[in-house]
């Protein structure tokens, strides 16, 4: 795989803590323009990783077909690190899906479909509150409490914080490689989704965007001129 010295140093800084990211450092259009520095094969890898990590809500495939498609796509990723990064995201999605699925009436463990290491374990420990995984996953107890209390917004934030930290760790352990770029873009996606769903952050971003537009487009001068003209 190629090294991307220009691209990696050309990417802006995203804070270490997701909570501190109150504004996207660059727009999707600007990001796409920089990502043209990736070669064609790596662009496809990035798109594939992004589609798996930030899945579209319009995917209405049955669970089994979806899981098989995920497995195929993950297997096609060329790097072990990327397979682990994307795999972890899908495993967490499986875990949350299992919690939701179990709440529905008349569900059976053997009908549950999921991705990764924990699926079989979940089926075997279906009746246990946290599928017996709380010993292995230290964060699960807190997530389980949030889920039980119906605080899905907070739960999503906790999941995103966890994923953010994982991505940052991988980004730091790889220098100037495709993995660095992919992890940055995936973190950008998490930040973008968070800002879209956070009304205060969205308001701040709108304000900043409005100020930038007014400063750069000459609208401000035009408004001032119109205002002055109306007084003459």
């Amino acid at each position: 795989m190629a090294d991307y010295y220009t691209l990696v140093t050309g990417l802006p800084w995203l804070p270490e803590q997701m909570e501190k990211c109150t504004q996207l450092p660059l727009s999707r259009i600007a990001l796409e323009r920089r990502l043209t520095l990736l070669n064609e094969t790596d662009q496809k890898v990035l798109r594939s990783a992004e589609a798996l990590y930030h899945p579209s809500l319009s995917n209405m495939q049955p669970d089994q077909a979806r899981v098989q498609a995920w497995q195929q796509q993950v297997d096609q990723l060329p790097s072990e690190t990327l397979r682990q990064v994307v795999g972890l995201r899908l495993e967490i999605q499986t875990l949350l899906a299992a919690l939701r699925y179990r709440r529905r009436p008349d569900t059976q463990a053997e009908h549950f479909q999921g991705f990764g290491r924990w699926t079989q374990w979940i089926r075997q420990h279906w009746k246990e509150p946290l599928f017996g995984l709380e010993g292995r996953l230290e964060f699960l107890e807190h997530w389980g409490e949030l889920f039980a209390q119906g605080q899905t917004g907070d739960l999503q934030t906790q999941v995103d914080l966890y994923l953010w930290r994982q991505l940052l760790a991988v980004e730091r352990s790889h220098h100037f490689t495709l993995e660095t770029v992919v992890c940055f873009v995936l973190r950008w996606g998490l930040a973008e989704r968070r800002l879209r769903s956070d009304p205060d952050a969205a308001l701040n971003e709108f304000q900043a965007l409005g100020d930038a537009l007014l400063q750069h487009s000459g609208i401000q001068q035009r408004l001032t001129q119109l205002f002055e003209d109306s007084y003459r």
Partner: peptide
């Protein structure tokens, strides 16, 4: 190459 990228930012 790294310097060229930093010029962008």
């Amino acid at each position: 190459q790294a310097a060229a990228g930093a010029l962008l930012e």
